[in-house]
Amino acid sequence: MDNSSILEFIGEGGFGKVAKCVNMNTNENTAIKILKDVNNYAKEVKMLEKLRTLDPEKNNLVRFMDSFIVDDKSCIAFECLDRSLLDLMVQREERYTLNEIRPITRQLLVALDALKGIGLLYTDLKLDNVMLVNHQDEPFRVKLIDFGLAMPASDVREGMIVQPYAYRAPEVSLGLPISAAIDMWSLGCVLACLFFCQNIFNGESSYDVMNTICCLLGQPQDHLLDGGKNTQRYFKRNRCPPNSRWRLKTPVEYKKENDNQLRLPEWEFDYIRNLADAVDIFSNAIDEVEVEDTRAFLNLLQMLLNPDAEMRITPEEALEHSFVTMSHLED
């Protein structure tokens, strides 16, 4: 940072701060992440070094420039980007259209496919971590940022808790095997949030998320619940099973057994019967073309948000989906 001057602090979180700086030698703006924990610094730099094998422009990943320690401060320098998808949504106070969601979807799929190709799980996909490059000059050109929680697939273990509540795949909560499929679940949550202008899975607690998953997508199948190490945290065995050997615990049962102080607020998506109904309620489609496009988006969303990780669509498959390719609109 000795040849850089801080212009302003543009972000702050549990990790530390992000400063917008200008390189005095090149006059180039950079974003310097100043981390509190040296262990987090070492872990993130290790992941970023792995990313050097990938073209950041081609694969829609933030460009890692340098890492250094100055005055006991651990710093990582990146290219300076515009703002996050969340910032833009808040500023506009409106939902993203399908024609805006489509290019974002394609770019994030390319990024996740590249990460999967080098054996990395991102584990922290959310609106805050998708940045617009330069929205005025390149509308909806995005890059994935913040690799502080990324990890090699070989380091993943059953029972690990990763991902924020609202973006957490059911296999993580249930204690099932974890794979790159968790990032595709989070992508589904991101796209849903862009469409609905709010999270469809409430982020108050892991029970809230599981409850909404069961309401919108259906209860995970018995073979998944049977194998989950944490299934009994959320489900009870049915004494007289009509269709399933398991049933979701009521909010009262969950609170009594886990945390009586936990607040379980009502969530509007709890009262919508399924994902198709939710999309239909929020859709603004007014002609046949828009209706067809909405159907394609819903189909991709259902494939991303499949509670069974083995059945969830992969990045490579999703890049060929009609919503992305627009093949359903060719006529």
Rank of each mutant, 00 (worst) to 15 (best):
D226A: 05
V209A: 12
I161R: 15
D37I: 13
R95V: 12
I272A: 05
R83C: 12
M151L: 10
L54Q: 11
S206A: 08
N3F: 07
E8D: 06
Y207L: 00
F235K: 11
V156M: 08
M326W: 04
D2Y: 12
L174K: 15
M24D: 11
P139N: 11
A276I: 01
Y207C: 02
E317R: 15
L125G: 00
Q107K: 13
D308N: 14
I6W: 03
Y96V: 05
E8K: 15
L248H: 11
F78S: 05
Y122N: 03
R106I: 06
E310M: 10
D2P: 06
P139S: 09
T314M: 07
S74I: 07
L125M: 05
H223P: 01
K46R: 12
A285W: 08
N238C: 09
R102C: 14
E12Q: 14
V324C: 01
C80S: 09
P251Q: 10
G117Y: 08
Q136G: 10
K43N: 15
I178D: 00
Q163I: 06
D222A: 09
C193A: 13
T123P: 03
V90I: 15
L98Y: 07
S244A: 03
F235S: 02
E94Y: 12
Y165L: 03
A296V: 06
M184H: 14
D124N: 13
D82E: 04
P164A: 10
W185M: 07
G218A: 05
K73W: 01
P103E: 00
K126W: 04
L187N: 01
C193N: 14
I272N: 06
L120A: 03
A111E: 00
R95P: 00
A166W: 00
A318H: 04
K73Q: 11
L305A: 05
I145T: 11
R312E: 01
N306M: 10
Y254G: 02
K17V: 13
L54P: 00
D183A: 12
D308K: 07
S206F: 12
L127F: 05
N40R: 14
F282K: 12
M311E: 14
N40L: 03
V45F: 02
S244Y: 06
A42C: 13
A180G: 09
D293Q: 15
A276V: 04
P139W: 01
A181C: 13
M89F: 07
E288M: 08
D259R: 15
R237Y: 04
L48I: 04
L174A: 09
V38L: 09
R92N: 14
M65V: 13
W185G: 09
F78Y: 08
W185R: 14
G117Q: 02
G16Q: 01
L144D: 06
P265T: 10
K73P: 02
Q221L: 09
L194Y: 01
Q221I: 14
